[in-house]
Computed example of a mutant assay.
Amino acid sequence: MRTYVLTVFAKNGDKLLDESFTAENDNEAKKVGEARLAEEGYSEHTHRCVSPEAKLILFHR
């Protein structure tokens, strides 16, 4: 399992969500990240999800 980090930002730059989770691969991580954003109501906020190598898996501005 690999550890990914999901971060959501407010318009003023404050972090609204900053958490890590594990997934088997980038595709699974993208699904988990999207589900977590929807669950918290942050889908339209600025967010990013990065892999252990700092590769962007999800990004919205």
Rank of each mutant, 00 (worst) to 15 (best):
A10P: 06
E39T: 10
E40G: 06
N25F: 05
R48V: 15
K11E: 14
L58Q: 09
P52T: 07
S51P: 04
A10Q: 03
P52H: 07
S20V: 10
L6D: 04
G41V: 02
Y42S: 04
R2P: 01
A10L: 00
E39G: 03
G13S: 01
S51Y: 07
K15W: 05
K15S: 06
E44K: 11
V32F: 04
L58E: 11
N27A: 15
L37G: 02
K15F: 06
E53C: 05
N12G: 04
L37V: 06
G33N: 00
C49S: 00
H47W: 02
V50W: 10
K30A: 14
D14Q: 13
E24F: 13
H60L: 05
L58V: 11
G33H: 05
E28W: 00
A35C: 03
L56I: 12
S43R: 10
A38H: 05
T3S: 03
N27E: 15
A10I: 09
D18L: 09
A10S: 01
A29C: 08
K31I: 13
V8M: 01
A29T: 01
K31H: 03
L56K: 14
T46D: 12
A29L: 08
E39V: 03
A38S: 10
F9A: 02
E53I: 11
V50P: 02
L6F: 00
T46H: 12
A29S: 03
V32G: 01
S51A: 11
A35E: 12
K55G: 08
R48I: 15
D14A: 14
M1C: 10
S43D: 07
N27K: 14
V32C: 09
S51L: 07
A54N: 15
H47P: 08
T22F: 00
G13Q: 02
E28M: 02
L16Y: 02
E53W: 11
E44F: 09
K55I: 12
R48T: 14
S20N: 12
T7S: 02
V5D: 13
K11T: 15
C49D: 04
E40M: 04
L37N: 01
V50G: 08
H60P: 10
A23R: 02
